[in-house]
Design a protein around this nucleic acid. Structure first.
Lengths: 191, 191
DNA sequence: TGTACATCAGTGAACGCGCGTTCACTGATGTAC
DNA sequence: TGTACATCAGTGAACGCGCGTTCACTGATGTAC
């Protein structure tokens, strides 16, 4: 059991990473201090050496989740040198892999509904990330007006969230495919 | 304090109606037996004369919420004699009134994220309602293929859910407008 | 380099609280005569 | 129509449980000499 400063930083990191996955997998309210510490290999009492309260961790974990999931994906998509550009981003965003691993994926799609009910900091963090995704898509759409980018975001987020509702995998796949076609067609009709 | 059989039926109705609104306003997990009974004008102990458990009520309340919100809206949209048809449905679905009153609105948009994490009956009920909304939109789109209807549903649900994340009302309105334009344009390009 | 000690990461018992659920009870209802 | 009584809708105290949080403690860390 490490007691050094480096170990503490590593513990904090493990706690945050675990929390960031947990909230994307089962929602903001699912995060329990005791269980979280257990998964991080520690006991519940140590939690308050890292964060002042569950609520404070929640805000930080959401920020982390948004950066991990949506942020990474958007940055990848925004890279000019990427072969496929928009089509590549849409393909990966609406992929089975993304649908089946919400804990590693876009926190916007995983938590849209929770966001409106959450504390102000959580809500603000989510809002910023949505704006970021709109910007990113507008650029990818090649100078389309913002309304088109907004509609594209709605389609992407809605389709991914809905694809996770279906128990029948074929229907779920169909939902992803339908949205992929629509968003990809938006570019084609623009350029 | 009524003790008749009619009164009991009315109590059950009040409990269900209250629960159906509560879960759409604050999520499935937000439903508390004690608070719910309080809002229905009763004490917590009486709950088990109406439902066997919180979980059982949850499934019934979700079914009710889906029927109230999405069902009503879809049925209205499906009526052939309605002046505007699809455009009318889309306008009301993506209206400020709908956004600002989730407790009376579409349960799909209010609970997409919660659905995947919920018990099997809840998930199945949600799944059915999504299929129903796809069917309804396909008919409204005038014989478009199912993929287009699915993409339209994703856009509608995604935009409504996202519009509730924004604190800035102008951005929220813009999201609704953007999706309205896109879905309405789908019909135009079809017919 | 080696020892003495202050620091502090992590432990685990304990707390108050709200939850879902149970149950003995109360008193209005509605039926049998 | 009027009375006696079984039914049962609703009450509120009590339960066990898991939660977030606190705190006295332990023992490894890393610094001062």
């Amino acid at each position: 059991l490490g007691h050094s400063q480096v170990d503490k930083a590593a513990s904090r990191e493990r706690i945050l990473a675990e929390a960031s996955g947990q909230i994307r997998r089962e929602g903001l309210e699912s995060l329990s201090v005791g269980k979280l510490m257990g998964k991080a290999g520690l006991t519940h009492g140590g939690f308050y050496g890292h964060f002042p309260s569950r609520e404070a961790l929640l805000a930080e974990a959401l920020a982390r989740a948004l950066a991990d999931g949506s942020g990474d994906a958007r940055r990848a998509a925004a890279r000019q040198d990427r072969p496929a550009g928009l089509a590549g981003f849409v393909r990966s965003y609406l992929s089975r892999a993304h649908r089946d691993a919400p804990e590693a994926g876009c926190a916007i799609a995983a938590l849209v509904c929770d966001a409106g009910r959450a504390s102000e900091p959580c809500r603000a963090a989510m809002e910023d990330q949505v704006e970021g995704m709109i910007d990113s898509l507008q650029r990818q759409l090649g100078g389309a007006d913002e309304a088109e980018a907004m509609a594209a975001v709605a389609t992407l987020v809605g389709a991914l969230a809905l694809s996770r509702v279906f128990t029948d995998e074929k229907r779920s796949d169909a939902m992803l495919r339908a949205a992929r076609e629509q968003v990809t067609a938006m570019r084609t009709s623009e350029t």
